[in-house]
């Protein structure tokens, strides 16, 4: 848990630029749009061969960019839990060709195939997005969204939220430690749920006070509804190359699917 939040500042685990790392210097906007297009195209695919190809490309990309190192592979867990659930439930939904039947339960082939295809597609998308956005700071994603036409209030909301995730995480840690030294052990009872309710309430109250102090501090510094990012990046030749490669991959997948 702490891992997630500590990494919230940057999309990747470390800020240190690695030598020769291939997506360095590609504009965040280009990468966001690429991730969106990749999701769109892969979502539209349906044939097994194309899905395997898409997953293959994502895996190769992950190997090439190191998108799965340093705990980042954990981001694949939630989606695969969902896929496991579907793998368990879809085959029981009935179908034309039963594979196995135990008493009243029939396992149908159609459901199995559907679940496997969903699993392939989901992993291809999640891994692809992970590769395309790897080592991008959440803050630069926020600024990129701002320049792409997302309303200023919404990007400010995103930037503030990212900024205070770590602070709240530490606040939560302190409150939880305070509960622990008083002998609190979570169980299945009213006391536990009430204590968690008070914990959430205290987190909210403290953050309201913090928010008010933030507003005052920002007013003191003359803030008026605009952030100035320090690295106002311009599109470069790298973006052109990156776009070309992504377009090539997407075109290849489309041709493989519909040709």
């Amino acid at each position: 848990m702490s891992n997630v939040i500590e990494n919230a500042g940057s999309y990747g685990a470390s800020l240190a630029p690695t030598n020769g790392w291939c997506l360095n210097g590609v504009d965040p906007r280009t990468r966001l749009i690429a991730a969106f297009c990749f999701s769109m195209v892969v979502t539209a695919l349906s044939s097994p061969t194309t899905l395997v190809a898409a997953l293959g490309i994502a895996v190769v990309g992950a190997g090439w960019t190191g998108a799965l190192t340093e705990q980042r592979w954990k981001r694949l867990i939630p989606i695969n839990l969902l896929v496991l659930l579907l793998l368990g439930l879809l085959p029981l939904g009935g179908g034309a060709t039963p594979v196995l039947s135990i008493g009243p339960i029939t396992v149908a082939r159609e459901g199995l195939v559907q679940a496997v295809l969903i699993g392939l597609k989901a992993n291809a998308i999640v891994l692809g997005v992970l590769v395309l956005l790897a080592r991008l700071e959440m803050a630069s994603i926020g600024h990129a969204l701002g320049t792409l036409g997302v309303p200023a209030k919404l990007t400010h909301l995103l930037l503030f939220t990212v900024r205070y995730l770590g602070v709240l995480q530490r606040e939560y840690g302190r409150l939880r430690a305070a509960m622990k030294v008083r002998g609190f052990r979570p169980g299945v009872d009213w006391h536990t749920y009430r204590s968690f309710g008070y914990l959430v309430g205290m987190l909210l109250l403290r953050s309201v006070d913090r928010a008010d102090r933030i507003v005052m501090a920002m007013k003191c510094r003359g803030f008026y509804d605009r952030f100035h990012p320090l690295d106002r990046a311009a599109l470069t030749a790298r973006d052109a190359w990156f776009t070309a490669i992504v377009l090539l991959v997407l075109a290849g997948l489309t041709v493989l699917e519909w040709a």
Binding site: K153, T161, L168, Q169, V200, S207, D212
Partner: peptide, 16 residues
């Protein structure tokens, strides 16, 4: 904005 952002952050932290 900061107040709403902190509610978002609480929502995120609590979901973990």
């Amino acid at each position: 904005v900061p107040r709403v952002a902190l509610v978002s952050a609480v929502f995120f932290v609590v979901s973990l």
